[in-house]
Design a protein around this nucleic acid. Sequence first.
DNA 1: TGCGGGGATGTGAGCGGTCACAATCCCCCC
DNA 2: GGGGGGATTGTGACCGCTCACATCCCCGCA
Lengths: 340, 340
Amino acid sequence: MALPDRGRTRPPVMTDVAQLAGVSHQTVSRVLNDHPNVRPQTRELVLAAITELGYRPNAAARTLVTRRTHTLGVISFDTTLYGPASMLYGIERAAQDSYFVSIASAPTLDRRSVLDAVDRFAGQGVEGVIVIVPQTSAVEALTSCPVDIPLVAMGCRTSPPLQSVAVDNAEGAAVATRYLLGLGHRTVHHLSGPPSWLDAEARVEGWQQALREAGAEEPDLVSGDWSAASGYAMGQQIAQDDSVTAVLCANDPMALGLMRALSERGRRVPEDVSVVGFDDIPEAAYFLPPLTTVRQDFGELGRRALDTLVGLIFDREVAAPPDPVIPQFVVRSSAAPPAA
Amino acid sequence: MALPDRGRTRPPVMTDVAQLAGVSHQTVSRVLNDHPNVRPQTRELVLAAITELGYRPNAAARTLVTRRTHTLGVISFDTTLYGPASMLYGIERAAQDSYFVSIASAPTLDRRSVLDAVDRFAGQGVEGVIVIVPQTSAVEALTSCPVDIPLVAMGCRTSPPLQSVAVDNAEGAAVATRYLLGLGHRTVHHLSGPPSWLDAEARVEGWQQALREAGAEEPDLVSGDWSAASGYAMGQQIAQDDSVTAVLCANDPMALGLMRALSERGRRVPEDVSVVGFDDIPEAAYFLPPLTTVRQDFGELGRRALDTLVGLIFDREVAAPPDPVIPQFVVRSSAAPPAA
DNA sequence: TGCGGGGATGTGAGCGGTCACAATCCCCCC
DNA sequence: GGGGGGATTGTGACCGCTCACATCCCCGCA
């Protein structure tokens, strides 16, 4: 199972460089680590030897003694979904010049599977882990994580001691709901994400809150699984109910599915029914009609997650939980005042 | 810059386990590596000591001597796009139980940036790299990659010595084109991906090929940048041309943008213009109208990429390039026979 | 002329595993 | 009863780097 010899000779090591430069290995190490107290001339010598040999320090050896891997792990469920994919991308860009980022997808979001992933990462020696697995079961598992490793949850609010960074899902849903109410709709229906997903729940709360504030009646909740398919399926029910004039969807694909169901039933958007989504996927502006939605700043989220994690890694102190990122409401034409 | 002490005492090492179990460190190592010739009773002893101490082997130390990191790198451009995201996901699932996968996104696809990413990975000690950066510039850079590391390009066909796995983009485009032609359209227009993207080019070729075979006139090419926005922009041009009755788009979001432009001009899909996409994103079935498209099997692609890479890592021999994955044509209602 | 002191460099000991090899032990058979 | 051989276990070197410490050189100053 040994790795085959790549190239003719074994790669150069620090001693080789030292020898070529006519210095000790320690001096080479100093140059590599930008230590002061190396004569510029010596430094040049070493640098020259390094490039001549094509020397590259051995990360494992360095890690062995420094105990730093410069690696962090990201656990997520399905990076094919726009939200998780964007978060991952945000993290990667934020981490790029200080960490390597290693990924793992949990096949399911139960305790076992999430904890296994953390364990795997711990075995690899990552310095911290960011989890994009916003389900109550996963969060519970992580809250009592037996492995002693810095952990940050992303995308949903969690309760201490598990740190998290998130957009203010409740606020986003509330803003959207108020907007629809403001347009003159008597109430707003909600096509939510799957139960036990924290962001889905937060959006439900925001929606309820806004309805209550306005004294509007609170319709029964309908939930999908984030997919356009589920939006379509639930949409077929919703479309039958003529009293529905406004629907807030927990994400954009479900809104798409809903709109198709509506259209098949001959109910026009926004004339008969107003629809608002959540996420602002790049395609949302090109739906028919263009989708009014709530945009999340995933880049910012990634940056904050990294900051929080780094804080945990170095200070080990539970910093004040960062403020939630305020989502942005994007008005397009899928929502309008009710017919009459 | 040292990592703060996590927990009160330093983590247990092999010697600690050995001592507790009353054996030598080597025996512990044997148990850990499933060597034969360890008495079952001894094994139990060691195992018990391991769990009692919560011992976890140090990956860096092991890597230092075995020269294996069990890590591979994936370089991509923008993992927010459905294609790359799916490929990444496919790779991750395929690699899960044999490798860690580390990701890097290249900010741009020029020579420098791609090679830097490879270099970074090499410094980390990855055993191989899969690149999802299907631009000619990137491929050229990789073909003459100065770093001696197993490399596989994914998503697009490349020329030796750079290995690649890909779906048969040309065939997919050809099938779609033939389908439209078969429906009775005199010719098929093509809204292509950006020039210099290999898969975009392959799709153009397939389209041209099919047109030639059928003796159909070859319209001017219009290209976008994969985004729905560009599809919309180009679509506004296309919509003005009444002679256009069928358009093959190089991906689904562009098809969406096109359909919106068409709809704004009052041209109905599929009655006035037939539209076919490429990729089959999960939302495609819920577009208005549902999009006929070409589906790629990203899971299979991921598996093949991994297989190829592993072959390269261990045999170092350039295996016969794997057959391209045949895409699947998915018929929905966005394409129909021409009006008259 | 001799001495203190800081900059520049070298030396050797680990870091925590695995590998090669040696040492035991045990059982069987002549 | 002694020898052979495989199973089981132990010993020490070594992977390539950083750390702590020792050494050396050179200058200024008494």
